[in-house]
Design a protein around this nucleic acid. Structure first.
Lengths: 209, 209
DNA sequence: TAGATTGTTAATCGATTAACAATC
DNA sequence: TAGATTGTTAATCGATTAACAATC
């Protein structure tokens, strides 16, 4: 197998949607799953599924398909979901609270260990069993926890300021749920989650019917 | 201007991120904004911004840029955000509650008027000022409200079943926050919002540093 | 006027799709 | 064996980027 190039974004984005289907197949005791089967389930082309799976390094068997157990491992390893990653949530408002309570993240190897907020009522409490700390303690607590992923769910106004603090505290990956384009040094990865772009897609698709 | 073809998805997805910048320009009293300015703000190429704006039908002035007021109108009209759209939230759990409380939606012309849930403790209460109804009343209440957008935030297990009920009740657009590929007739638009694909991007980008 | 910026047309790039030999 | 499925190589498609004339 040739070493996969800088991974194609569309493929990386599709891979997570394959996992539940394959896991489901495993729980039914199947040993193999074909690209065709996955494609049908998601209304994709089989060739696209095969190409996507190829970047994980998995090898299928003609006629049978891909070995379920190895395929799950390959996808998880490729995405870095085989090792549980600790993360903190910064901003324990509506969205932050929702994300803390989002069960599925555990399946993606994402483990939220703490929240930070500036609301005195929240500081010292727990949300879905996760402790909430004063946001002013991030500079000390983040290095202490040894965490390097932060989920940013603060109000837009303080997004950049908070990100700066996170980066100084040693965070190297920010999952940004604010609608702010964050400025960050090149060693820090910022992934922006933009709800309005999804809604824009819905609206334009609805109009073209 | 030639009629824009079936709108290019990447452009549609980027357009919403231009709006806050342009609105900001307006609030500063500027009359024109150049594609260059927007591009710098978002770390994009100016030519890409110009191409994206072109699909809205806006015309710019060489040397000056685009007229701020008309540009905002053009983008909003193109996305269908100039007219307030009513929507309901189905599943008032953590995520549903968070989305009801998400202020920004008003700026996108999205107006959440009601929630539905099966939890007796929630039925009859209000969440962020929005009334929550029994999920079994959707078949009656949705036609009554005359709403045709539903935001689906129920647990994965009942996603398809709930979607079927929504469609029967006359919903024509579903913003699907469950990680289920919904089966729907062709006149219904389903837009899936997949958090795990964003997290996959973050993880693979972090590893490649 | 000079020069920044637009909008158009062409070139490049990357992703998707097609074709098909290999194989279990 | 026959045929379903993989993986590779090539073709197509669409999006991004480049080049540049038009223009205010």
């Amino acid at each position: 197998m040739e070493t996969p190039r800088i991974s194609a974004a569309p493929s990386v984005r599709r891979l997570p949607s394959y996992l539940p289907i394959i896991r489901n197949m495993r729980s039914e005791g199947e040993e193999y799953i074909s690209g065709t089967t996955i494609a049908q389930e998601l209304h994709l082309e089989a060739i696209q599924v095969r190409k996507d799976l190829a970047i994980t390094g998995i090898k299928g068997k003609p006629k049978k398909g891909y070995p379920v157990e190895l395929l799950i491992n390959a996808i998880e390893r490729f995405l870095g979901w085989d090792i549980l990653q600790d993360a903190v949530i910064v901003g324990v408002g509506n969205l932050g609270t929702a994300l803390i309570g989002y069960q599925e993240f555990q399946l993606n190897g994402l483990n939220i260990i703490a929240g930070f907020d500036n609301n005195p009522k929240k500081i010292g409490s727990t949300v879905h069993g996760i402790p909430v700390f004063n946001i002013t303690t991030m500079d000390i607590n983040i290095p202490f926890f040894g965490v390097n992923i932060a989920i940013l769910t603060v109000p837009t106004i303080c997004a950049q300021e908070t990100a700066d603090t996170l980066i100084k505290a040693g965070i190297s990956g920010i999952w940004n749920f604010t609608n702010t384009k964050l400025k960050a040094p090149s060693h820090v990865v910022v992934q922006r989650e933009d709800l309005s772009s999804g809604y824009a897609m819905l609206c334009t698709k609805m109009r073209s019917r």
